[in-house]
């Protein structure tokens, strides 16, 4: 847990380099990629200057902010580590909030299929209770990647 918090702190302070590939998942289409680097500071000032810069360029509208956190394997690993107890249950149940979130984080196509896949492969993902969260994360990501039908875009 302590380690996970340290990683989270790192994620919070990590450079925007890691944010760049984030805009690739559903709901974060081409528009987000193109306008995703709009400087937030200018937006805030623009919010009160009302048209000085023109809304088209600086308005805080859809596209730039609607994407999840970096949908990178590092983000997914942190998520799996911190949510391990809840995720283990959801995997065994084949559904649940952590499955839906993991689907979003890994850029997979369908939470229901992800749930079924993780449930079916549960005993190879968590073969015993002593296995480390790192290995669990490896196994989850490998399982999702191996299933071409899921077309997970962010692993």
């Amino acid at each position: 847990m302590r380690k996970a918090i340290a990683v989270a702190a790192l994620l919070l302070t990590a450079g925007s380099a890691s944010a760049a590939p984030a805009y690739g998942t559903a709901g974060c289409g081409l528009g987000s990629v193109l306008f995703g680097s709009q400087p937030g500071f200018v937006q805030v000032v623009a919010a009160t200057t009302n048209g000085i810069f023109g809304n088209q360029t600086f308005g805080i509208t859809t596209g730039t902010l609607n994407c999840g956190p970096p949908a990178t394997p590092a983000g997914a690993r942190l998520f799996i580590d911190v949510n391990r107890e809840a995720l283990a249950k959801d995997m065994a149940r084949g559904s649940g909030e952590t499955i839906a979130t993991l689907t979003q984080l890994t850029g997979c196509s369908d939470a229901k299929v992800v749930g079924a896949t993780l449930q079916k492969n549960f005993s190879s993902i968590i073969p015993n209770e002593k296995v480390s969260s790192d290995i669990v994360a490896d196994n989850v990501l490998a399982t999702l990647k191996a299933d071409k039908q899921l077309s997970c875009s962010a692993i």
Binding site: M1, M91, A92, R93, G94, G96, K112, A116, Q119, E129
Partner: peptide
């Protein structure tokens, strides 16, 4: 959570394995 209760961890793992063997996806 802390990984300090070995019997409870074993118990939960056992239940998880039994549950995952039932091919029913739980409703929300």
């Amino acid at each position: 959570l802390l990984g300090t209760d070995a019997p409870a961890m074993k118990l939960k793992q056992d239940l998880l394995e039994r549950r995952s063997a039932v091919p029913v996806q739980s409703e929300e």
